[in-house]
Write a protein that binds this DNA or RNA. Structure first.
Lengths: 339, 339
DNA sequence: AGTTGAAATGTAAGCGCTTGCATTTTCCAT
DNA sequence: ATGGAAAATGCAAGCGCTTACATTTCAACT
């Protein structure tokens, strides 16, 4: 019944204001290049018509989207939530919009998402970690898409990175565990294939074993996807051996939460019977009982700095500079001296 | 130094394959309208060139984006994570991409995001809850943008909704609390302004008070934003009164987690000294100790159904049909009979 | 009043794709 | 072989915007 007016266009506004489309465009994009009186007239035309610029058309004409894409391994748990939130907030301050997608920890999916985001005209990309097929880096370079890695710092990476030293951080934590007298250790690691953060964390733990002159066999390792249930399963597998570990280090807080939960279900007291540690210091770590001893990662700082660095790359076509952020151990109650 | 080839276009592919651009376009969009041999030739040209269609151009020409926008109040905690994940997965199955943004619980921001998403050509919109300024509904209608509400069911809403009955659910929970003998009750509610979920949950609790013939003053109410710290603060405020409540119902699990944590810090035993309940049944509810008694919301089901309903609306221009989903109380350890 | 350069505005050419319509090719029944 | 309908392909007009370049307007000087 009702007439369907199509969305108003620049032309409609121009006509209504009695100016050319170029002037309307300038009013929107470079207001100072238009005289006051005209600007006002255009402004009221815009309001009268309820005009909103068509994004796709603008992109086509201007070759800029003011959009930054980010591909994170998962949205499901809180690991990336705070850092990404900070990233988005900083972007917003500079007039950029964030497009997020998740790769579900699958390299193929990540590649597809990268292509999608590039096709959508992302001015820049935020990627997590350094491990990915070389041809992806080639693609990015060929297309001249500024990209930055976060959550993992590597001075000599293909892309600049803003992150921390996963290996060193886990090394420090493992040293602390060993220093507390633990000699039968286990690590519940994330899947290391295609995931340098997981791999480096595991390496860091191994470094510590070596550093303290312990038998490499003193560290049992289980690899499993980052999910609560998997942490729980891995934990019970580990603890139902004849001589179970006295400390279980987890590749991240989610896995640790699963372990902790399962420990309680098994009637094991943490930390009296077994110590558990995490990594990331997500909010959950503070909420669990006992509180989780873990590695604190400066998520918000990382997100904010990554945003600024990426914008710098996009706007000035600079190669971009990385930065190594500091982590520290947060001691709560889940780690204590070996029994 | 290196030559910067611009991204290959349809024209390049057409030239390389020796066909017209129309044929290349058809190869991509309607492969069955192109003969086998041609299709192969085009396909290899695409691969040889590393061609990716330009999204903005496609949108301009086709007036379709295969993009659905969603505006959620927050990404910061897990309240919307699972439902949204399911929503996205279902969308993906049907070839749609999800664009998410968060309004930070601010109506003005929500409106801005709606406009942005529409400008970006979203084929449809997912909104949370029914409370918003009428002119937003007018805008959506005028622009003919299919939109659906989730997380709150209302048969007579301006937009179809796929959600549950917040009021009834909280009523049921409150009845259970009262049935356990609690007579001094408190509710830590989310901010009700512009948030029908929060408002209806509070109403439900009040309904229960009335239903059991209790003095309305038997229910103390504190309104505070949905953040852990606020839940904690509200809780200590409530408990440091002369005759504190014996049961504190929280507007959601995040608030409840804060309350629980603070209770422990205050040396209060839950549920012996005070009972605490939540709402939503996010993962956290299961991880806390004691486990949180809460209202289970079928997040994944809701997300999946919302996606299907919205796609239906988009593709067939139907008005869309809502659905009321069922919730149920999950009993864990944080609620027990009054002391 | 007449110049003149700067500021404001207008003109129009694309940006890369889809799609209605026109044209050519294919293939079958005759 | 051949006519003709159906299938395949080509042609070209936009989609709504930005921006280089052309033109007009304006104000400040002679």
């Amino acid at each position: 019944m009702s007439k369907l007016k199509p969305a108003p266009t620049l032309d409609d506004v121009a006509k209504q204001a009695g100016v050319s489309t170029a002037t309307v465009s300038r009013c929107i994009n470079t207001p100072d290049r238009v005289v006051e009186a005209t600007r006002k007239r255009v402004q009221s035309a815009i309001e009268a018509l309820g005009y909103t610029p068509n994004f796709a058309a603008r992109v086509m004409a201007a070759k800029r989207t003011f959009t930054i894409g980010a591909i994170i391994p998962t949205m499901d748990n809180a690991i990336f939530a705070r850092g990404l939130q900070a990233f988005q907030e900083e972007l917003r301050k500079h007039g950029y919009t964030l497009l997020v997608s998740s790769s579900a920890y699958k390299p193929e999916t990540e590649e597809e998402q990268i292509r999608t985001l590039v096709a959508r005209g992302a001015d820049g990309l935020l990627l997590i970690g350094h491990d990915r097929a070389p041809h992806i880096y080639d693609f990015l370079e060929q297309r001249q898409i500024p990209a930055l890695v976060a959550w993992s710092f590597a001075a000599e990476g293909k892309l600049p990175s803003i992150g921390f030293d996963n290996r060193q951080a886990m090394f420090d934590l493992a040293c602390k565990v060993i220093g507390l007298g633990h000699r039968r250790l286990a690590m519940i690691s994330g899947i290391t294939r295609g995931n340098d953060r997981a791999r480096l964390r595991l390496e860091g733990a191994r470094d510590a074993i070596r550093h303290h002159g312990l038998d490499p066999a003193a560290l049992q390792v289980v690899e499993t996807p980052y999910e609560i249930e998997n942490g729980a399963e891995a934990f019970s597998g580990l603890m139902s051996q004849d001589t179970p570990p006295t400390a279980v280090m987890c590749g991240n807080d989610v896995l640790a939460a699963g372990a902790l939960l399962r420990a309680q279900d098994m009637g094991l007291k943490v930390p009296q019977d077994v110590s558990i540690t995490g990594f990331d210091d997500i909010e959950l770590a503070r909420l669990l009982r006992p509180g989780l001893t873990t590695v604190h990662v400066p998520h918000r700082e990382m997100g904010g700095k990554a945003a600024r660095a990426l914008i710098e790359m996009v706007e000035h076509s600079t190669p971009g500079t990385g930065e190594r952020l500091h982590t520290h151990i947060v001691e709560r109650q889940s780690l204590s001296p070996a029994p």
